[in-house]
């Protein structure tokens, strides 16, 4: 099965305030947007398993106008807190790139 980074045009992550992280998946076009919006690999359960967060707290937004899927969740460690390795959460998306898209 193809990986997320073999389908999407561009993926990024960023802190959204000190307590949240948000991942933007720029799908590229409507076909890939439709394919990615359905995949279990981007479900709250899958995100929760990768990042160690409660799936019930994972938010998902689909922006069809620009073919973007957005996933937001509380950071496991608040920005700048003990053990935080990525203050701006700028590299958190990388763990998602190898997700296999069914």
């Amino acid at each position: 099965m193809p990986r997320l980074d073999e389908i999407a045009d561009y993926v990024r992550s960023k802190n959204a305030g000190p307590f949240w992280v948000t991942i933007d998946i720029f799908c590229g076009d409507a076909d890939r947007f439709d394919r990615l919006r359905e995949t279990a690999a981007l479900s709250p359960e899958a995100i929760g398993a990768i990042y160690g967060v409660d799936p019930g707290k994972v938010l998902r937004f689909d922006a069809p106008l620009i073919n973007v899927i957005k996933i937001s969740f509380p950071r496991p460690i608040a920005q700048g807190g003990a053990g935080d390795v990525d203050s701006h959460a700028g590299q958190m998306f990388v763990a998602l790139l190898s997700a296999e898209i069914g």
Partner: peptide, 16 residues
């Protein structure tokens, strides 16, 4: 239109 609409995504948990 892309650069302007995409900015609502940036570092916001909810883009809408």
């Amino acid at each position: 239109p892309f650069s302007v609409s995409a900015h609502l995504l940036y570092e916001n948990a909810d883009p809408f």
